[in-house]
Nucleic acid binder design. Sequence first.
DNA 1: TTTTTAAGTTTACAAATGTAGTCTATATTT
DNA 2: AAATATAGACTACATTTGTAAACTTAAAAA
Lengths: 150, 150
Amino acid sequence: MNTSDEIEISQSEWETMRVIWTLQKATSHQIIEILEEKLGWKASTTKTYLGRLVKKGALRTSKNGREFIYQPMIEEQVAMDNASKSLFVHLCQHKVGTTLANLIDQIELSKSDIQMLIGKLEEKAQTAPDKVSCNCLPEDCDMDCKMEDM
Amino acid sequence: MNTSDEIEISQSEWETMRVIWTLQKATSHQIIEILEEKLGWKASTTKTYLGRLVKKGALRTSKNGREFIYQPMIEEQVAMDNASKSLFVHLCQHKVGTTLANLIDQIELSKSDIQMLIGKLEEKAQTAPDKVSCNCLPEDCDMDCKMEDM
DNA sequence: TTTTTAAGTTTACAAATGTAGTCTATATTT
DNA sequence: AAATATAGACTACATTTGTAAACTTAAAAA
């Protein structure tokens, strides 16, 4: 399903990564404790995800006495960009504008984030097309699509 | 994993929904043909997804002679909003601004979408906080987090 | 040194997912 | 009316995912 070299991370694995990304390095003990408190996971559950993530190459460990130190092998921002990109690729192009707008309504952004985004958008406006068309059907789809609103 | 009454739609099911959302109504024949062309799916594969989507309540059918007419039971924009929302909920709050910016770099937006987004952001700026903090660890996490940059 | 603890490894198992072949019943064609 | 095409139902099966118990081994404590 994934032709590139990107590492696939499931939802639960993602939650595991978040704590390590945030702490930058952590022992399983810490990670287990946090995830037990945050999500109610059993220790073995977290251990499973940790093991899977190491196997996938998303984490690496270095031994330190009895414990291992877990560290991310992939950057959080890169992973976030990939995740958001690969969601939006599957959305109707024609509707991503509205989706973004609704999303912005829902999430928290700082004043400086907002300024940055406005800047980015103003720049993008220079070269933006007047309209974006739906890409939900194959390129050469000449069937009588009922796409009145496109 | 999903406590609400939202219908869970997998990646492949999503691709199936896209064509029906776009056509608004379609026979399995049309859908099969489109997905074979667009994604190389075998007829039975598409039939499986169609069946699963009907069972989940994402599609409904009405018989018309030998064929069935498939129609969406959930709105595309609503589904898109849910999908984007539930992705972003799992991202580090502290980094969503940058993620959004990178996303905007990657996708296509029309001039009017961009204007709309700028408007939305300007409005949001009024009440925006100066900074948003990371929510990757539990609320009352008093461990010695190495979160220098937050 | 012996015991205990705990970190990582193995095993388990159901549900979801991707993918597709086979069967059955019925609409359509001959 | 008989033959045929085909739509949807049923079956299949490997992989991934969520979830967690049991086991093993080595470090730490007694």
